[in-house]
Design a protein around this nucleic acid. Structure first.
Lengths: 209, 209
DNA sequence: CTACGATTCAAACAGTTGTTTGAAACCATT
DNA sequence: AATGGTTTCAAACAACTGTTTGAATCGTAG
């Protein structure tokens, strides 16, 4: 292994941050549970703030690439794309990150929730920045599936993100698959209804994307 | 006034908790901005944890009674109740709490978000306990509007709560009304679609409410 | 074996935390 | 003016925070 201590700190920090929050979790607690020395955090990661960012960077990179890979696979399958499959490409990668931390399915979602509540901090900005291009890609895909402009879709996608984060944060491992299916059905209906409300946008100017 | 310092501490604590989180906010910061002495928090509220609970108690009591009042008004208007109006009775009171803290529309929602992330703490349990009977009332109302069993509706209502909390947490004051309308339309479509998926439940056993 | 860079470790650093204390100040009632 | 209960205040408390330091240990290449 390139660096075992660094990884162990990252893993236990992720778990403790999700359970207790960033400020409430102490470096002594992290290093004790990771069976490392107190100074190891500063040695391997520089500072506590840098550790927090590192915890997210690792997972968000994983989440983003998995989502985009599935999305492109869906886009290649049919044109216009199937809305259910587009939402599936958005939702299932998030569930994988949750269920892979065995025993606590909602941990990653609670971590995201905590990060999002940190509204005007470095963390919120960093996550928003890493999310934005993925969100744009999915907004484009949904707009093509519905035949509408992608402009007002960001809001409806936020509805979906909110529902996903909140619900999965307290879903136990067994119900994850069923909850995901219900969420996809719920979201598709909401998106289709919202698409009906605004005038169809079929002009070239908006739809070449 | 019965107690001005107590109220001032409650107000500034609410604001700082939403902006920075519970642990990151210090009693010295609260008392400084509230123009009170450091010991005033412990004198008036007992402890920092008790202050956190008090901040939520005040707002949740307000939110719950407003929601239930509007719900009963909707239930009295027609039978079966109008689904859009039921969701409106759920959503608008939350917006009022957000907009009444001028200049930062999403503050209360971020506060709720932070509280919800505190998963296995006293705070999470207290909020869930205060929410449960309201949730039950709205689940019953929605089930009557749709003509389905209220059993599986809790999950769809959680979708709505998640979308509401997440979206409003970053909605600026001006867009609040429009966002609420979009959310109601989105949620109604999702609920109606989910109702179609399961078999109609019209037996006496489930529907006497 | 030796030497050297990477890693670990115990100890200490200065600063901050929530809480407590006892005296001072306030304020209405006698 | 004197009383007694409520509220404020400055000061101190022990405990804990993230970070730094310099020596000890490790693993490996010369």
């Amino acid at each position: 292994m390139t660096d075992s201590t660094r990884q162990r700190i990252l893993d236990t920090a992720e778990q403790l941050f999700a359970d207790q929050g960033f400020h409430a979790t102490t470096l002594r607690q992290i290093t004790r549970e990771a069976q490392a020395n107190l100074a190891a955090v500063n040695y391997h990661h520089g500072s506590k703030d840098a550790l927090i960012l590192a915890v997210f960077q690792r997972r968000l990179d994983e989440l983003n690439s998995e989502r985009l890979a599935r999305l492109h696979s869906v886009l290649d399958a049919s044109d216009p794309p199937d809305l259910e499959k587009v939402l599936g490409a958005f939702i299932y990668p998030a569930l994988l990150l949750s269920t892979q931390s065995a025993g606590d399915g909602g941990r990653f979602m609670r971590l995201l929730m905590r990060a999002w509540a940190e509204h005007e901090t470095q963390l919120h900005g960093a996550i928003a920045r890493q999310y934005s291009h993925v969100m744009r890609a999915f907004a484009d895909a949904v707009s093509r599936a519905l035949g509408t402009s992608p402009d007002n879709l960001r809001q409806q996608l936020d509805f979906l993100i909110g529902a996903l984060t909140y619900t999965m944060a307290e879903t136990t491992d067994g119900q994850v698959e069923e909850t995901a299916r219900a969420l996809i059905r719920f979201g598709c209906a909401g998106l289709r209804e919202s698409a009906l409300a605004e005038p169809r946008q079929t002009s070239l100017k908006e739809n070449i994307a």
